Amino acid sequence: MHHRFSRVAHRVLCCGRQASGDDLNDERNGSIRWVFSLRELQSATNRFNYDNKIGEGSLGSFYWGQVWDGSQIAVKKLKNARNGTEMEFAAEVESLGRVRHKNLLSLRGYCADGPERILVYDYMPNSSLFAHLHGTHSSECLLDWRRRMFIAIGSARAIAYLHHHETPTIIHGSIKSTNVLLDSDFQAHVGDFGLMKLISDEIDHDKIIGENQRGYHAPEYVMFGKPTTGCDVYSFGIILLELTSGRKPVEKSGSQKMLGVRNWVLPLAKEGRYDEIADSKLNDKYSESELKRVVLIGLACTHREPDKRPTMLEVVSLLKGESKEMLLRLEKEELFRPDSMASSVGTTPEGSTDCILKNDDEGLAGA
């Protein structure tokens, strides 16, 4: 049993900026967060016991914990944090804490105690999108088509918020299915945005980002190493192709060569063979028109030419079925023509990739 938390620590009032539009609105602005002591977090996680560990990433380890009022938290112990003062760390974290949206993973607090640099988040009981598509929960088949559409739209809204509402613009830089967390209602919460600012400059950032992100990187990022909003769009496009196909970003082909999901999906899309793209775990229970739409959006997001990718605001609108004219233009793009040579199936830089019943066309246009 975990000891009760005491409410020591300072109150931090983080007043978020009011967004415009339904997609960017965050009704939780102005929430209060706590600065936790190391002792409190040790108590909550049973001294960071291995049994409490729920994840390990390139930036740190995640632990499940329970606070004084019985609510659950996720505690992230950062690796290779900057060697700045506690005040400098607190200022950076509080800056991130002001970024609030219903589809972003909420930061509840932090700890800066000696060398320890720890972040405290809301706990997501349904783990990550990766766990349900490829990992521990994949055999349970809990992601029906409706849930997949809600996850796609919700996570797109979160990234659009970072790109188009925050000033200065926040480039996520590490969009992948392990960073799309799912709450008890399977609503998406995108995590790990802005964390690279907290990591020491002496660490090889390309290595940190690349450890668990094979297949998500845009070709221009792999070549030049500079993250952009276009790189985020590319990574999100890979997630859309994961959601529709159930395939990992990179898998071994029949010849044992590594094949990116984009290069697997594109030839099938060109020939209109969307039923072969659909994840078999859906058991043919999906909207054909929506699946086709999500595939086309995913492929457009992963276009080899960055200036031909949609913005995240356009992606949100497309996913919701609000931009029918834009979708029609998208279908006519050279990329999707059967005789087109613009598929980029050839050599790509390492690290890049290049219950609704079937035939129900109503789907989730109003989701």
Results as ranks from 00 to 15, higher is better:
residue 331 E to I: 06
residue 171 I to A: 06
residue 46 N to I: 00
residue 311 T to H: 05
residue 247 R to N: 12
residue 235 S to Q: 02
residue 253 S to I: 04
residue 124 M to T: 08
residue 293 R to Q: 09
residue 272 G to D: 03
residue 334 E to L: 09
residue 63 Y to M: 02
residue 243 L to A: 11
residue 180 V to A: 04
residue 274 Y to N: 01
residue 48 F to K: 03
residue 326 M to G: 04
residue 219 P to S: 06
residue 176 K to F: 05
residue 300 A to E: 03
residue 181 L to V: 06
residue 121 Y to M: 00
residue 48 F to R: 01
residue 54 I to H: 00
residue 207 K to L: 15
residue 354 D to K: 12
residue 208 I to A: 15
residue 359 N to E: 12
residue 312 M to H: 09
residue 23 D to S: 09
residue 56 E to R: 14
residue 258 M to E: 15
residue 51 D to F: 05
residue 33 R to W: 02
residue 168 P to Q: 11
residue 270 K to W: 01
residue 271 E to T: 08
residue 332 K to V: 03
residue 58 S to Q: 08
residue 109 G to P: 02
residue 48 F to P: 10
residue 84 G to T: 14
residue 130 F to G: 04
residue 289 S to F: 00
residue 12 V to H: 13
residue 304 R to P: 01
residue 351 G to N: 08
residue 330 L to N: 01
residue 285 K to P: 03
residue 187 Q to C: 13
residue 54 I to M: 00
residue 226 K to V: 13
residue 203 I to W: 06
residue 330 L to Q: 01
residue 128 S to I: 07
residue 262 R to Y: 14
residue 79 K to S: 08
residue 355 C to T: 09
residue 310 P to E: 02
residue 6 S to G: 10
residue 314 E to I: 13
residue 36 F to V: 03
residue 361 D to C: 10
residue 344 S to V: 04
residue 193 F to G: 10
residue 182 L to V: 07
residue 144 D to W: 06
residue 270 K to N: 04
residue 321 G to C: 03
residue 252 K to C: 12
residue 86 E to P: 04
residue 232 D to V: 05
residue 64 W to L: 03
residue 170 I to C: 11
residue 44 A to V: 00
residue 21 G to F: 07
residue 70 G to L: 15
residue 331 E to L: 03
residue 261 V to Q: 02
residue 345 V to R: 11
